[in-house]
Amino acid sequence: MKESSDTNDKYNLISVYGALFFGVPNGGMDTKALAAMVGDKPQRYDLSLLDQEVGYRRRNRQHEEFCRAFDFEDSKIIQFFEMRKTSTVIEDPFTKKWTRAGPKELLVTPASANLGRRWETSEDYIVSIDADHSDMVKFPQPDQDGYIKARYELRKFAEQAIVVIERRHGSINSTVSLP
């Protein structure tokens, strides 16, 4: 959208105030258990891009491209990270089905989940959730840690976004002729 010549794309981009990222493995993740499940299937390549040891060049390039494309310093990307280990997948020897009954691992480390833009390195942008990787975005109860923290950030977004986006639209309206 940043490089598009379409005026609608420009308007849509400047209308985005921010995002909440939940356990995004910016720095990679522990993929050993998933690799065993995927085996030699075509998904193995995609999985390798998430591996903390292998796909770092592509992840770095994607991060740089994202930072250039969404370079609004008046926006916010809130990065949540898991605090609990997740049960890994193992194959049941009797049923030959994969289950989450393997050893618990921290799939996405706090450092991996918290690769924000250059101004998003403080605790204002990096938030822990007392859950594992699978449960950090499941909110069956409104008193859960993740729900409370996500709701708090969204309320701040709602307060701040209107002013920021109106200001951005005022700037683009003065430089772009509307259809």
Rank of each mutant, 00 (worst) to 15 (best):
M1E: 04
S4G: 06
S5G: 08
S5C: 00
S5Y: 05
D9M: 04
Y11T: 04
N12R: 10
N12I: 01
L13W: 00
I14P: 01
S15A: 10
V16L: 13
F21M: 11
N26D: 13
G28R: 08
G28M: 12
D30P: 07
A33Q: 08
L34R: 03
M37A: 15
R44T: 01
R44N: 06
Y45M: 06
Y45N: 09
L49Q: 13
Q52Y: 02
V54C: 00
G55Q: 10
Y56F: 07
R58S: 03
N60T: 13
E64L: 05
C67H: 10
D71Q: 12
F72Y: 09
E73W: 02
Q79H: 14
F80M: 06
I90P: 07
D92K: 03
F94Y: 14
K97T: 15
W98Y: 09
R100L: 13
G102I: 05
P103H: 09
K104W: 01
L106Q: 14
V108E: 04
P110W: 01
A111L: 07
S112H: 12
A113N: 03
A113F: 05
A113R: 01
N114M: 08
G116M: 14
R117T: 03
R118H: 11
Y125T: 13
Y125G: 09
S128F: 01
D130T: 11
A131D: 09
S134C: 13
M136D: 08
M136R: 04
M136A: 08
V137W: 05
K138R: 14
P142A: 10
D145F: 03
G146M: 07
A150K: 01
R151D: 15
R151C: 15
E153M: 13
E153C: 07
F157P: 11
Q160V: 11
R167V: 09
R168V: 08
H169I: 08
S174L: 00
S177D: 14
